[in-house]
Design a protein around this nucleic acid. Structure first.
Lengths: 188, 188
DNA sequence: ATCGAACGTTCTATTTATCGAACGCTCTAG
DNA sequence: CTAGAGCGTTCGATAAATAGAACGTTCGAT
């Protein structure tokens, strides 16, 4: 008669950042020059609901988010980016997009750098390679001795087992980063 | 005193596919050999809640989804893929990941092909280029006359303004597709 | 001035997502 | 065979997300 897992809350604090989501929603809306009333109506949700969300109280339903993303014409992942992306200390955001479980295994990240950011990565294990594809802005990246400056649409592939750079100048930049781990451990 | 936007529901049917989400959740859980009770407990949600979600009734909260994604160690976007991805008629799934609004503008898609799929795209406007990066499986892709077969981690860039191919053989494949639209309309 | 329309906020009502506790089931230990 | 533990489901209670109606404000038209 002793039932199974009983107590809740061995997960201390994993709560979502509702305030960041609210700011993000508001920014997306105001960028389009839309009123709160209009967006709520077009999306098919109550404006009181949207108001509360933008104010940073809120834990919206999947359906609500879905309707907002559709109306704002923004990919779903973009809408909840402030919740899912890891915010680095110095102007860098990272979000894991997908993982391949084949050999070689591949991790895909979305990355955003603010303007005037210079970030060095100390290097992954031997044999790891990265491919960067720039989505917006201008990004200087590559292995220590051989960096390239990429425009939107450009790609660059390089060995990432040594120090490598991500840097922006006067404009921010976002990019897709694929990290390829070798099939077998490559001897040094 | 006439208040603003009044009636709801000029949005006919945009409801999420709860059944697909349920199947997906269950599949993720069972792949890991976890019991429903255990996952619910570890994620910090009631198992009655998870049960209902897996059964396909459900409109989970962002917080609930977040906890499940964290516990399943799966990117958030992956968890809700059945909701956000467009399912093609013949074994092809597409999901818009991100959009760049610079010039040139870039769209980023995640794509999945079942095994034994051969899909031809008739071609985008002049000057459009695509870059494919394979995440898992083996994918044959490229412009009509010049296709390549890619392994996980491989990339291929080609002009996409003519017919181009995506094809798998005996194993399914997923990939990241970036579509680059030219800054100015390129004359034919 | 005054009216009306739209804005964002706040209030109450209702729906419902979530919780916690049962239940019936299977399986194993003894 | 029985007792206990875990499983997935179902049920009532509760908390919370959402809906709808009011409010005070601003702004333009008349």
């Amino acid at each position: 008669m002793i039932d199974d897992h009983l107590r809740l809350d061995p997960m201390p604090e994993a709560s979502i950042d509702a305030e960041a989501l609210g700011r993000h929603l508001q920014q997306l809306r105001e960028t389009r020059g839309w009123s709160l009333s209009r967006l709520a109506n077009d999306a098919g949700i109550a404006k009181s609901n949207l108001c509360r969300l933008e104010q940073g109280n809120g834990n919206p339903t999947l359906d609500t988010l879905w309707r907002l993303a559709a109306q704002l014409e923004v990919p779903f992942g973009t809408l909840i980016k402030p919740v899912t992306a890891v915010l680095d200390d110095q102007g860098v955001q990272i979000q894991l997009i997908d993982q391949g479980h084949d050999r070689p295994s591949v991790d895909v990240y979305w990355m955003h750098l603010d303007a005037q950011v210079e970030r060095w990565s100390l290097g992954h294990p031997k044999g790891v390679r990265e491919t960067i594809t720039v989505i917006s802005g201008s990004l200087c990246t590559g292995a220590e001795a051989l960096t390239r400056t990429l425009a939107p649409g450009d790609s660059h592939s390089f060995a990432a087992d040594g120090p490598h750079l991500y840097a922006t100048e006067d404009q921010a930049s976002s990019a897709i980063v694929t990290i390829v781990y070798p099939s077998r451990t490559v001897p040094t």
